[in-house]
Design a protein around this nucleic acid. Sequence first.
RNA 1: GGCGGCGUAGCCAAGUGGCUAAGGCAGAGGUCUGCAAAACCUUUAUUCGGCGGUUCGAGUCCGCCCGCCGCCUCCA
Length: 514
Amino acid sequence: MSLRIYNTMSRRKEPFDPLVPGEIRMYACGPTVYDRAHIGHARAALTFDVVWRYLEYRGYRVTYVRNFTDVDDKIIHRAAELGQGWDSLAEEQIEAYRRDMRALGLRTPTHEPRATQHIREMIAVIQTLIGRGVAYCLDGDVYFEVRRFADYGKLSHRGLEELRAGARVEVDHRKRDPLDFALWKTSKPGEPSWDSPWGPGRPGWHIECSAMSMEYLGETFDIHGGGADLIFPHHENEIAQSECATGKPFGRYWVHNGFVNIHAEKMSKSLGNVLAVRELLDRVTPGALKIFLLGTHYRAPLDFSEEAIGSAGRAEHRLLNALSEIRRVQEMDLSGAASSQDDRPLLRQIRHAEREFTDAMDDDFNTPRALAAMFDLVRDINTSLRDTDRASDKAAIDSLRLAGDALRELGSVLGVLLEDSPEKRVFSDARVADGVQVRVSDYHEARKAIDDAFQSGQPLPEDKVRIIVERRRQCRDEKDWAGADSIRAWLGDRGVIVEDTPRGARWQLKSPRT
RNA sequence: GGCGGCGUAGCCAAGUGGCUAAGGCAGAGGUCUGCAAAACCUUUAUUCGGCGGUUCGAGUCCGCCCGCCGCCUCCA
């Protein structure tokens, strides 16, 4: 099997073949930093984070560049509204974006260039374009002349005539063609401004990505991506500029992620249904959010709903639970255990899941299928776990360890089940000291300590919880079911879930987010 | 108007023309358990919006119809 990627340019899945064997250069358009990141930004960033992780899992060396558009009309307008400098607003939002993406557990790209730090390179590209006669100056503005690029429209699959016919934007009659777009615009007073051969001004939107991608990745590179909305005009224009400037092909594989709708409606400021990543992460775990997002193929539109995100949270729990159960059996006392036969079925199932996963991801990053492979493995793990609980077997436990490692590795390719994710901490099993009598005074003191912590919103003291759980065990030993149940209910009210297993009770803190 | 996409079980969602239509969530029954929870097992689409067509064979290809959506303007 080899990797196939859907290329917007050809409208089909193509075998992926990097320019330099073993090395991949990838560019994804990042956010315009004027407001908080919303779930759509999260989907775009996650899509390319997963592409990156999978390519590395496949053994490629990847250079991944994602820009920040930090000079733009929207930033200028927003800053004016806020009575703030455009540059300080951009700076703030860049920090906020980084914080949000980190909270989601996304890796930082190899390079995160900012438009304002590459003005010089942009001017150089514009000069080349003027020198080649495909751009022209008008009172300090510079425009790209669309009809000079024969391939214009090849990405969005539209001809110049179609585009002109569909244009609803008011026409600037100074331009040679309504579709000509600005490479450089003169700055109005108070706007950000840089010196240029055409007078003080600022760059047009599209030129930054051409200049920065070529700066970091070369004139031709492997993957260029972004949201589906960028296909036209942004990426179309990037191609026109870049290929005219260099005479070489620009991006080779064009990858575009679909949009997120909110309850079947487009997310927009006017509808007031913009879902900020921040707010979302206040109530769902990053893992749940990612499982939700990856549950739909990246090119398909995705509809957000409370029900769907809740379902993803429970699905995440299923994955985490399997890992936590594996840890538990590994801590079992095996002194008297047999080591009859090794657990061949599970080993086979691990390999099967890994193959299914790879096949799915090779097929244009089919994350829903990849997740299904992980859940299949979870079912196999759980089955083996059940048998292991009944008859401890060292070989079976070894196999389970391998299965857990495999599951974690597959998860890490999708960015779920990450080692340092906070949600995993809630699954700390209590080890119950056998036969130690809990003194009544200790018990009451523990209850009080837990109550205090709970009321002040502090994390509950684990050692105290342990005392309560141990006390409940004593009740159960004495068949004092009413006492045991009331203790369980009491802990439940304070966010501690107690569950009895064949080998004693285990407890966990309810996720603080739910 | 132009271009493109979607419609698969109660919900979400995979599905290179051909083994019994993935997976998750929810539901039902069962196993386990003092009870509960968790987990596991079984079960839930003779059928893929509708109607025709191509084919030995179609959810998968073609045509028409119905319903929904995106882009063509800043947008992830």
